[in-house]
Structure formats: structure tokens, C-alpha cells
Write a protein that binds this DNA or RNA. Structure first.
Lengths: 198, 198
DNA sequence: AGCAAACGATACGTATCGTCTCGTTTCCGG
DNA sequence: CCGGAAACGAGACGATACGTATCGTTTGCT
């Protein structure tokens, strides 16, 4: 998969992207986000600073690219069982945000990209929407089975899942365990009483 | 209310905290987070840098203090109506995260505090738990009324509310409107079918 | 072989951080 | 109303990182 934030030119093309992305992940894992400077990545990659700046506009874009390759965006398998499929989706999301490198970088990433709408939307594309579409497929499948209501707001469901998980990870520090996953799935599958069926 | 991150000494005590906090909010509102440097705040407050560093360990702590005063943490009024009370709580949360200054600063704040557990926990205290306890009171009131299940996990409810709202604000950019508020309230009040009544 | 793109090294100017020193102002007790 | 201590303003300072620019070298395509 090509990188999202780098801008390979027409002919010839970059020769050191992979080396740089690997080095970025390495620095991040070994020394943490505060140590992740362009100069440190360049040194770890055995590369000149200019080479990094040739392909990425700034540090956040580089980190986003480096992490995008670690971010899971599986197709949700058709298991014939709605509960199991949604659990798969939630577990995948938990997996992503439980990842040390990702969790440690996301706030700084968001902070750095927020003032740059162009980069921010590319970030959303790479990080969120790729995964979201796969989960949406599973949700629509569940609707077709009759397990979820026709008017289900799939975006809201995903905002709730990802939002809760991320919030727990970054703000409250509560565990991201099977219990949470189960709650989040049931939040969607246990339909409201709807005032009639009582 | 005293500030959370500053550390006023025994006697004498600081004379310029308010001036500095006001200046910080001013710079933030007028020029945005990237312009919020210690030097800019000092200049805007008509204060020496050293005065700021005397009372706050770093920029994040200062910003956290400045924003904590803007953060709403109302008591949820006893309206006799669970739905209305929870809606009040959700609206308040939306209000907080819809605030330009707060939303623009939160990621940078989280990024800066994350590597410092001590500051991070003081931040949680000031920003989250004050508000959460007030909302928890309303939730427990609703349980007592029989409108919510006895085993309600109030922390999870709040993680879902705040998480979803914050995620929408920072990541997807979806609107934080009455529709969302209503959905989030119903998520809690429309009890699951519980496998029996269905 | 030849050319252009990609590269590495590295110097440079700018910005901000957080520390420090020093002389001045403010406050409080006596 | 005086004197000392704390708080203060100004700003110099070293360290670090950013992002740009220059330049000679390597790489890979034709």
C-alpha cells in the first residue's frame, strides 16, 4: 500500500520511504513520542533530514503514515452470527487503540493536524474511514438479517464504539477488556423496547 | 476556586494568577493554540516569564488551569423527570466539548500530559471527575426512581457520552446537535429487552 | 554511458523552551 | 511607618528542534 501523506513524484520515485517509516516506528516504540524528532528518525534510518522533508510536509504526517500501516482495518468475516461479527469489529477497534504506539501518538497527532484541514482530512481517510467502511458492511449485513433495525445509524454506532474506547484509553484509563467489548456490542444488539412490544 | 495545577506557597501567595489565566484564555481565543506560547501569555498578561514558571511547571498545566475555569460542571437539577435530567447532563457535556478553546486545546493537552502521570491525574481530577460526580448523582437518582436498572454502570455511561461527543468533535467532525443528545440519552433510558420480556 | 532524480550530510536562521540572575515592587507584621 | 521577605518584570542564556537550503554523490532508467 502506498503511503498516504507522502507525495511520490512521477518518475523515479522515492527509494527510502520504507526505511524511514520503519525507523519512525522503531524510535516511537523504543523511546516514546517525545523522542520522536525528525532528526532522530533520520539518524535511525541512516538518512538525511532533507529526504524526510522531501516526502512529508511535517512530523505529524510522517507519524500518521507510520502508524497507518499498523492500524488494523480487517474485513469483518461473515460468520452468520451478528453478535460474533460485531464483537469481532469491537475487538479490532480495541486492538487498535490498545496499541502502545498508536495511543501514545494519537493526541499529539490530532493536535498537530487539527490546524491543517487538508492534512486532517487525509488523516481521517487513512486512519478512520478505511476501517469504518469495513465495519459498516458488517452492520448492514446484520440489518439485512433482521438483527438490527432498518434505520440504524451506522456512523453513530461507530462513533460510540471508537469514542468510548479511545476516551477510556486516553482519559479515564479504564481497562479495555472483554467486558467492555461485550457491553458495547450489546448496546447495539439489545434493541430498545420501542414502547410497543413491552 | 483555587487553581489546580499551580502551587501557591504558604505565606504571601501569588499575586498574578488571575491575570495570567485570563491572558492565556485571551491568546487562545484570539490566536489559537499554536500561538499559545509562554512568552505570548507573559506579554499579554504584562508579566515576566519567570512569574509563570514560578506557578506552573509547564505550558500544559497552565492551559489546563485556564480551561478548567471555563469547563461546566453544574449540579444536575432534580427535575423529577429522568429523561430531562439526563438530557441536561448530555447537553452540558456537549457544551463543554463544543467550546472552541477547549476542543482546540484538548488534544495538545492530552499529548503534553500523557508522559507525566502526576500532571495527568491532576488534569483528570480538574477536568473530568468534578463533572462526572455531578452526573453520577443524577444517574443514581434515576436508578432510585426505577427508571434505570440497579446494576447500571455509571462510569461506562459517562465514558460513552463523553467519548462519543469528543470523538465526533475531534475526529469525524459530525455535528453535536439535539439529535445526537437525544440518541445518547435514549441509549441509556431505553432499556434492553433483557431476553425475557421480548 | 549519460542524465535526472533521489539521496546524505550538514550548515543555517528561527522559534520556543525552561533556567537563571538581578534589580524593583508589593505586602504584612511589628 | 518601617523593614524584610516574597512576589515580581525584564531579559540574557543554553539547549533543542524545526524546516530550508546548498552541494557533492549515488542510483537507476534508457
Amino acid at each position: 500500500m502506498a503511503s498516504v501523506f507522502s507525495s511520490p513524484q512521477a518518475s523515479g520515485g522515492p527509494r527510502s520511504l520504507a526505511k524511514i517509516l520503519d525507523a519512525a516506528r522503531g524510535v516511537l516504540s523504543e523511546h516514546g513520542y517525545p523522542a520522536l524528532t525528525i532528526e532522530a528518525v533520520a539518524a535511525a534510518a541512516g538518512v538525511g533530514k532533507s529526504t524526510i522533508y522531501r516526502w512529508w510536509p511535517n512530523k505529524e504526517a510522517l507519524v500518521a503514515d507510520a502508524l497507518a500501516e499498523v492500524f488494523r482495518a480487517d474485513d469483518i468475516p461473515d460468520l452468520g452470527d451478528t453478535h460474533a461479527e460485531l464483537r469481532y469489529a469491537v475487538d479490532m477497534t480495541i486492538d487498535n487503540y490498545a496499541n502502545e504506539d498508536i495511543a501514545a501518538s494519537l493526541p499529539a497527532l490530532a493536535a498537530g493536524l487539527l490546524p491543517h484541514p487538508e492534512l486532517m482530512s487525509r488523516f481521517r481517510e487513512a486512519f478512520l474511514f478505511r476501517k469504518r467502511e469495513n465495519i459498516a458492511v458488517a452492520l448492514r449485513r446484520a440489518v439485512r438479517r433482521g438483527d438490527l433495525p432498518d434505520d440504524l445509524d451506522t456512523d453513530l454506532v461507530q462513533d460510540i464504539w471508537a469514542g468510548t474506547i479511545l476516551y477510556r484509553r486516553l482519559m479515564t484509563g479504564s481497562p479495555l477488556d472483554a467486558d467492555l467489548a461485550e457491553h458495547l456490542v450489546r448496546l447495539v444488539t439489545d434493541k430498545p423496547a420501542r414502547r410497543a412490544g413491552g
